[in-house]
């Protein structure tokens, strides 16, 4: 029961089907990487699980510790313990990071209970220090004028504060130089543990040098076409996605 289960998921944008029968299980405590070429539907997968209104789930289930979250509002899914780290985090002009985080933490408290401000700030500062985020961040508007690295660190800070049960990290490595990549990876690694399951979506193997996954899945054209251990990522890096594609085409023609 303690897992995020995706069962035969089909997702469309408008009339176009992007995810075509995808199944995955991420038990708590494990890190699963989903790799795939551009256009394979990786980002669609994360947005659809998060409940973005532009993505229509036509069939299938997403079970969060046994509970189907399909049909729930995005904020309800989040409060049930799902976290989405965005590939392109949004800028929210005029809303300070501190107020944004406070609202998110407050939303998780029982009705009528007020957030204890000093405890909140102490927790936030501790996590910021670990992620090497300067204190000036708190008063800056959410992601506004942030560098790519700052935005991604901010995503991980939010994840650290919100303590999700399952986190989907969508191309967290994009837009990061080597130093930023290390900081962000250290942050994710520090959050790994028996109470968190991670779905790591990435195009490049390099992220997996820093966040070493327990399993690697290859996604092509809206399906998982191959799964394996962390060495699968290295094989992909070496041979490219074409070797997987060829494999699929071969098996497809074999069926015919």
């Amino acid at each position: 029961m303690s897992s995020l289960v995706i069962k035969d998921l089909h997702v469309s944008i408008g009339d176009k089907e992007i995810i075509r029968g995808l199944s995955l299980e991420i038990p708590k405590g494990e890190v699963h990487a989903v790799m795939g070429p551009n256009g394979s539907g990786k980002s669609t997968l994360s947005k659809a699980i998060g409940g973005h209104p532009d993505y229509t789930i036509t069939s299938g289930e997403v079970l969060l510790d046994g509970e189907n979250i399909i049909g729930m509002e995005p904020d309800v899914r989040a409060r049930k313990g799902l976290f989405l780290a965005f590939q392109y985090p949004m800028e929210i002009p005029g809303v300070s990071n501190a107020n944004f985080l406070r609202a998110a933490v407050q939303a998780r408290l029982p009705e009528g209970e007020e957030l204890e401000a000093t405890e909140f700030y102490a927790a936030m500062y501790e996590k910021m220090d670990f992620l090497e985020i300067p204190r000036t961040f708190t008063s800056r508007s959410v992601n506004e004028g942030f560098s790519g690295g700052e935005k991604k660190r901010n995503e991980i800070l939010q994840m650290a504060m919100l303590e999700p049960r399952y986190a989907i990290l969508d191309e967290t490595d994009s837009g990061l130089d080597i130093d930023a990549l290390k900081i962000v990876s250290n942050g994710v690694n520090a959050l790994r543990g028996p109470n968190l399951g991670v779905l790591l979506i990435t195009h490049y193997q390099r992220l997996l040098d820093y966040i070493v996954p327990d399993y690697v899945h290859v996604m092509v054209a809206g399906r998982i076409v191959q799964s394996g251990g962390k060495e699968l990522a290295l094989e992909l890096e070496e041979k490219g996605y074409d070797f997987i594609r060829e494999g699929i085409e071969e098996s497809a023609s074999a069926v015919l």
């Binding site: 976290f83 929210i92 005029g94 609202a103 939303a107």
Partner: peptide, 25 residues
């Protein structure tokens, strides 16, 4: 922007309020 706030668990009403405040700030 709205989806981003919701994805953090912030309720729709609260999310609207935050965005409007940010706009006016």
């Amino acid at each position: 922007e709205f989806f981003y706030l919701l994805s953090r668990g912030i309720q729709p009403k609260e999310a609207r309020k935050l965005i409007v405040h940010g706009f006016l700030q």
